[in-house]
Simulated assay, not measured.
Amino acid sequence: MDADQERVANPFGMDEDCQQCPELCETRSQVVHGYGDVSAEFVVVGAAPGPGADRTGVPFTGDERGEAVLDVLGRLGFTDAPPTATEPDLDNVYLTYLTRCRHPDRAATDEEVRNCEGYLSAELRMINPEIIVPVGERVLSALAYEYTTKPADAFDIAADHATTIRGRGFELVPMRDPAGQSESERTAFLEHFSSLLERDYRQTKGRRSR
């Protein structure tokens, strides 16, 4: 699987008519695969498309929860686009989800998450990021189980928000769901992530061969 370097929406050409989850096929508007810089050092992972992303086809766009994440990325210098942008220009960051289809009335089942594992693992393998930002408890548990040496129940999004967790080959920096974040929690995340950026990741990834 090779990335289309000129394409920011679904740059790995993943199945846009996936039929693995029958219930989600009935409720989704479209499959929402990853979006952004395929040479990124940073990947942001949400649980599933919200109503905005289901409409736009771009992760973390079109609704209040997604716009809160884009606002944080803008404050950190990953985009000059306003939080309301539906096709933001992104620098050194890639946005994606555990599950690629929206159900308006419930969270994804464990089986639906497993059905999408191949999409996320392929993106992470191809991008090879330095830092992954799991947004919310469900994503933290899934990534912790898959990519750390500790059991998933050893982590808690409230306690681990705006901290760094060592993973296998990269670090996790959990973010509490924007819908439940306080202003102090948002400030804490911005301050912690800004300190990580001082390591100057941006001078290396884009120049190395893949």
Rank of each mutant, 00 (worst) to 15 (best):
R114T: 12
H161M: 06
G57P: 00
A122E: 15
L90P: 10
R65C: 11
G167M: 12
R100Q: 14
E171D: 13
A142V: 11
L73H: 02
C116W: 11
Y147F: 15
T84W: 08
R100W: 04
A122S: 15
G77Q: 01
L143K: 03
F170T: 12
A107M: 12
T109V: 00
D156Y: 05
R75M: 05
E64G: 11
R114K: 08
C101V: 06
A152E: 15
C101S: 12
Y97G: 09
V173H: 08
S121Q: 13
P59N: 03
R102C: 04
A162L: 10
P82G: 10
D110Y: 03
P104I: 05
G77A: 07
A144R: 01
V69G: 05
T84N: 07
R100M: 12
T149W: 09
D105A: 14
I127S: 02
P174A: 13
E123R: 05
L140H: 00
N92K: 07
T148R: 00
P174C: 13
E130P: 00
R106Y: 11
C101I: 00
D89Y: 02
I165P: 11
R114Q: 10
T96F: 06
G57L: 02
Y145C: 14
P82H: 10
I131C: 14
T99H: 05
L98N: 01
P129E: 01
P151Y: 09
D63K: 04
S121F: 11
D156W: 05
Y147R: 06
R106C: 11
D110K: 07
E67N: 05
G136D: 08
G77Y: 03
D156A: 02
